[in-house]
Amino acid sequence: MTRRYTIVIPVLNQLRYTAMCVESLLAQSVTPGDILVIDNASTDETPQWLARHPELAQQRNRVNLGCGGAWTQGALLAGDAEWVVLLNNDVLAGPRAIDAMLDAAEQHGLKVVSPALLEGAEDYGYAQFAPEYLVKMAGTVRRGWFHGVCFAVHRSVFEAIGFPDTDRKLGGHEDMEYLVRCSRAGIPVGTVGDAVFHHFGSITQKAMKKETGAKALGDRHYFYSRLGMGWLARKRFKLQRERQRDQWSAEETKRTGHSLHMLRENGAWKHV
Rank of each mutant, 00 (worst) to 15 (best):
A97W: 12
W83M: 02
R142W: 14
A97L: 04
K111N: 06
L15D: 01
A130Y: 02
L134I: 08
E122V: 04
G74A: 07
V113I: 10
L15F: 01
R16D: 14
A81K: 03
A116M: 06
D90I: 03
Q107D: 08
E82N: 01
A70F: 02
E45I: 00
E23P: 02
M137I: 09
R52L: 11
R143L: 04
A116T: 10
N61A: 11
C67F: 07
D44P: 03
G68D: 09
G120Q: 04
T43R: 11
L92T: 03
M101P: 00
I98W: 06
P95A: 10
G68Y: 02
V30K: 03
H108S: 12
P54V: 08
P131W: 13
A127L: 11
H53W: 08
P32D: 13
T18E: 03
V135N: 06
R52K: 14
V135E: 15
M137Q: 12
N13F: 00
V37R: 00
W83L: 03
G125A: 10
E82S: 06
R62A: 13
W71Q: 07
G33Q: 15
D103T: 13
W145L: 13
V141G: 01
A138T: 10
E23G: 12
T72K: 14
D90Y: 03
Q48C: 04
V63W: 15
P115W: 00
L15W: 00
S29D: 14
E122Q: 12
W145T: 12
T72N: 11
L26K: 11
T140E: 15
V37G: 01
G66Y: 00
H53E: 10
C21N: 15
L26T: 06
E55T: 14
V141H: 03
V37H: 02
T18Y: 05
P131A: 10
L118Q: 08
D44T: 03
A75Q: 07
R16L: 08
Y124W: 11
D44V: 02
A19P: 04
L110F: 05
G33A: 15
G139E: 06
L92H: 03
A105F: 10
E106M: 09
Q28N: 12
Y17F: 13
G144R: 10
G125M: 10
V22W: 02
Q48M: 09
Y126E: 07
K111V: 05
A75L: 09
E23V: 05
L15P: 05
P32V: 06
S114C: 03
D34N: 13
V30N: 02
Q48S: 11
A75F: 04
V85M: 07
E132Q: 14
T140H: 10
V112A: 14
N61I: 03
G139Y: 09
R52P: 06
V141C: 08
L117A: 09
L26R: 06
E122S: 08
M20Y: 09
L87K: 07
A27N: 10
G144Q: 13
D39M: 04
L36P: 01
A51K: 14
I98D: 07
M20Q: 14
I98K: 04
G33T: 15
R16I: 07
D103M: 08
A116I: 04
T46D: 00
E106Q: 15
D99Y: 01
E82T: 13
A121E: 14
P54C: 05
A127P: 05
H108T: 12
E106K: 12
P95M: 09
G109Q: 09
L12I: 00
G33W: 01
E122H: 08
A127F: 01
